[in-house]
Amino acid sequence: MSRSTIDLWVGLFVLMGGAALLFLALKVGNLSAASFTESYTIEARFANIGGLKVRAPVKVAGVVVGRVADIRYDNERFEAVVSMAVESRYEFPRDTIGAILTSGLLGEQYVGLEPGGDERMLKAGDVLKITQSAVVLEKLIGQFLFNKAAEAPQP
C-alpha cells in the first residue's frame, strides 16, 4: 500500500492535537507543579476547619508544597482530620505547626505550615501535634460586639 496525502493530513492532525494537549498540560496546567510528583501524607487535627476544601493548597512560607487530599470528621474526638499530600522533596521538623489561614480578607482558605526546630523530620502518616483552627468571621465579629457591649457601661 502506498502512502497517500490522507496519511500526511492525518499525521499533521494528530501532531496538532498532541501539541494542543501538551500546551494545555504544560502552559495552562503547569505540569511541573505538584500534580504528578511523588508525595507523602501527613495528618492534622483541627477543632474547626472553616471553609477548607479538598485540594486546597498547603503552603510553607507562602510556597505551595502540597494539597489537601482528604477531610473527614473523627466522631470520637469531635475533631476534623485533614490529610495533606506533601511533595516528597520537602521535609519538615516534627514539631511543625499547622494552621488554617485565609489568603486575603475573603480569599480561599489554605493550610499553612510553620516549621519548628525539632531535629527529627515528619514521616508519612505522622500527625501534627500543634494546630490552629480556622478563624471564623462570625465568631470574631460576635466576640468583638460582645467586648464592646461589655465595655460600654463603664465610660
Binding site: 494545555l24 498540560a25 502552559k27 495552562v28 496546567g29 505540569l31 500534580s35 485540594r55
Partner: peptide, 19 residues
C-alpha cells in the same frame, strides 16, 4: 494571566477530566 491560570488549573482535575 498565565501564572494565575497555572496556579488554578490542575492537570488531573481539570485537564484530564476534560479529555
Amino acid at each position: 494571566f498565565w501564572s494565575q491560570m497555572q496556579a488554578a488549573v490542575d492537570i488531573r482535575y481539570d485537564i484530564v477530566n476534560g479529555v
